[in-house]
Amino acid sequence: MPDRQPFSIKQLSADDLEKYITQLADLLHACVHAGASIGFVMPFSQTDAEDYWASRVLSAVQTNSIIVLAAIAGDELVGSVQLDIDTMPNQPHRAEVLKLLVQPGFRRQGIAKTLMLEIEKIAEEHTRSLLTLDTRTGDIAEPLYTSLGYKIAGVIPGYCLDTFEDRLDATTIMYKTLQ
């Protein structure tokens, strides 16, 4: 693990996302290859990672339906998280936290916690009072979410394919009411 480095949090515009697309792809690729259960399974290439950001996230940022935060240490993008604010008309108070990612070599430095706290502030700025997310049951992120005040709504068995193995993993659905 590199020495603890100062980092800043930046909300990415569509132009920023295009500028950082290679680093965002590197981040996603590294996290999936480290075992993160974030929607992808092996084999997962760098091109797959770039396609995700370019085809799925960029258009959502352009239409203001998803907000992307990035953690930057020096010139390196080392983490990100997304907030989906594109909810149905009966859910204008809710948003979903997506894809909390931290480069494996930069973990345990407070980056994930800082990204989550910042995404909560942005949710409040968008008048969202309820955040939801899901995480693989028993994953290393689950205690982080609990420490930040997220409550478990339930566990769904057999929710998704494991990143590496031919098996189904459960997911834990969590929520937090913002003040």
Rank of each mutant, 00 (worst) to 15 (best):
R108N: 10
E125T: 08
N90Y: 13
G105E: 15
E120A: 07
A95F: 03
P89C: 03
E96Q: 03
K121N: 05
T127A: 14
T114A: 12
V102D: 09
T127F: 14
L130H: 10
T87V: 12
Q91I: 07
E125H: 08
R107Y: 09
K99E: 02
H126T: 07
P89K: 09
V97A: 05
E124H: 05
L130C: 05
A123Q: 01
E120D: 07
L101P: 05
K99W: 01
I111Q: 14
I111L: 11
K113V: 10
A112P: 02
T127V: 13
E118K: 00
E125N: 09
S129A: 12
P92H: 14
V97S: 02
R108K: 09
A112E: 03
V102N: 09
M116A: 01
T114C: 02
F106P: 05
S129L: 14
N90P: 07
P104Q: 00
K113N: 13
K121W: 05
Q103N: 13
N90V: 10
R108C: 06
H93L: 06
Q103S: 11
M88Q: 13
L98M: 07
R94N: 12
I122H: 14
E120T: 04
E120H: 07
M88I: 10
E120R: 05
M88C: 08
G110S: 05
I119G: 01
G105H: 12
I122M: 13
S129M: 14
Q103R: 12
M116V: 01
Q91W: 11
E124R: 10
H93F: 08
L117R: 10
D86C: 07
L101R: 06
L98Y: 00
E96D: 04
L131A: 08
Q103F: 08
P104I: 00
E124A: 08
P89M: 13
P104V: 00
H93P: 04
R94D: 06
M116L: 02
I119T: 04
E125C: 08
L115T: 09
L98W: 05
M116N: 04
I122Q: 15
L101A: 11
I119M: 02
I111G: 11
P92E: 13
I119C: 00
H93N: 11
Q103H: 15
T114D: 03
L100P: 05
G110H: 04
I111E: 15
K99T: 03
K113M: 15
L115C: 11
T87N: 14
I122Y: 13
M116K: 00
R108L: 06
A95P: 02
K99A: 01
G105T: 12
T87L: 14
A123D: 01
R128D: 02
A112W: 08
